[in-house]
Design a protein around this nucleic acid. Structure first.
Lengths: 245, 245
DNA sequence: AAGTGGTCTAGACCACCAT
DNA sequence: TGGTGGTCTAGACCACTTT
């Protein structure tokens, strides 16, 4: 049961776009949350007093945008972006020709609450004198380190994170489930570099060996930045794959 | 005037996808060429004996894929990939954070026709003993080299390329306009490395300096691979930007 | 005025899923 | 069996472009 609303025939904007925006707004307000089924075509059509065809068009737009997914016979659901998948694209694990997509282990080296410096303030769009978490961790495959990460998070949003078992779980599901902060999309910059003394030791390589430096700014709903991280990956294990269309 | 054909109600595949594929095939066969207007919704519906709604759906799929574009009041046209744009999509080199999107110069070092080795044969899906072009060139910004490229092309498809002024123009527009081979999408792999003696000299850096190694397989219509290239870029000038969704 | 695509409707029938 | 989405139809009306 849903209160109909604010679709406007007088508006320039087509009804199906108005509906799409309304649905996105409801997801952003957590009226409909990740993974949840939203009302059926028929219900939406009835609630908003438009035809089913128009509802179909609105939903197809949101499916296209990755906001929803649909299953014949079941319903329409709010999509949860799966970053563990996109993560696994970034690295190749096939170093023995084995195809097993092994889940990387992770070990937190330190977690502290600090006063951020200017670049972090700007990237996370912090105001006043907000503090941030700084997490350093190393990720491993078969117990060999292959990436070290330096992660910054706004303290307020993630208060309580420091008490959690961060070694056991991926971070993005924690953001989503515990802090109601799903990561929707991210901006990444890649640059090649060579390992310094400290990084080389952490990664088990020689200073001067190639490494990939990845900076990522991750956003949640309404394009709010919620995490900034810099990763340094072993060059010999790092392979970034992208399909350009 | 168009001979109707081969849409099959008995087929598992929905009519609108059958139509979309038929249209793509006609474009691939150059029955409808780049930039040309294709028949209107009504004509297509009549020719294929299906409803206008189904035609609309087929066309919207192709618009989504970037194969067609539509203009209200004018018609539906075969899209010509915009190469100044796609170029900047494929290569995102920020010059010291400057925003000037300067067009890089290029200088061909060598072009030869050779018998490809196995990796090239597999990537370009060559049959029998087909030969390939191998082009080596260096790209420059402000007369400074920043990328060296090693490019492989099937000889048959691009016969005559060796006589063209490759220094003056971008390659992809040449593929498109002269050889009716638009590049539709590409697969890229990025990996950090350090410069060897020869590469360092070409790029004006020191051996051991960081470089980015980019391998790209470019495809035309019907997912046919038509170019394979390996690029080595100066690490200090290379910054790859990607939005992960 | 005639032709184009863009939006919207009100159905029909089907395939799939739960019960 | 009833509800869901997926396909398809046959219109209507509108906005835009060209002649």
């Amino acid at each position: 049961m849903m209160i109909a609303s604010n679709l406007d025939l007088q508006n320039d904007k087509p009804l199906y776009l108005q509906l799409a925006e309304t649905i996105k707004a409801r997801i952003a307000q957590n009226i409909w949350s990740l993974g949840m089924m939203i009302p059926s075509e028929n219900e939406l059509a009835k609630d908003f007093d438009i035809s089913v065809g128009t509802v179909k068009k609105a939903l197809s737009v949101l499916v296209q945008e990755g906001v929803l997914f649909r299953r014949q016979g079941k319903g329409t659901f709010v999509a949860s972006p799966d970053f563990s998948k996109s993560f696994s694209r970034f690295f190749r694990y096939d170093w023995q020709g084995g195809k097993r997509a092994e889940t990387p282990g992770s070990k937190v080296l330190s977690i502290e609450v600090i006063q951020p410096d200017r670049p972090v303030i700007e990237k996370l769009q912090l105001e006043g004198s907000q503090q941030v978490f700084r997490i350093k961790r190393v990720r491993t495959i078969q117990n060999k380190p292959f990436v070290i990460e330096d992660i910054y998070l706004p303290y307020e949003r993630f208060k309580g994170l420091e008490t959690m078992a961060l070694d056991q779980r991926l971070l993005y599901p924690i953001y989503n489930e515990t802090f109601a902060t799903p990561v929707i999309w991210a901006d990444e910059y890649l640059q090649p570099a060579t390992a310094g003394q400290a990084d080389a030791e952490s990664l088990g390589i020689q200073p001067g060996d190639p490494v990939m430096c990845v900076e990522r700014l991750a956003y949640t709903y309404q394009d709010r930045p919620v995490e900034w991280r810099r990763s340094i990956g072993r060059g010999d294990l790092f392979r970034y794959h992208i399909v350009v269309k």
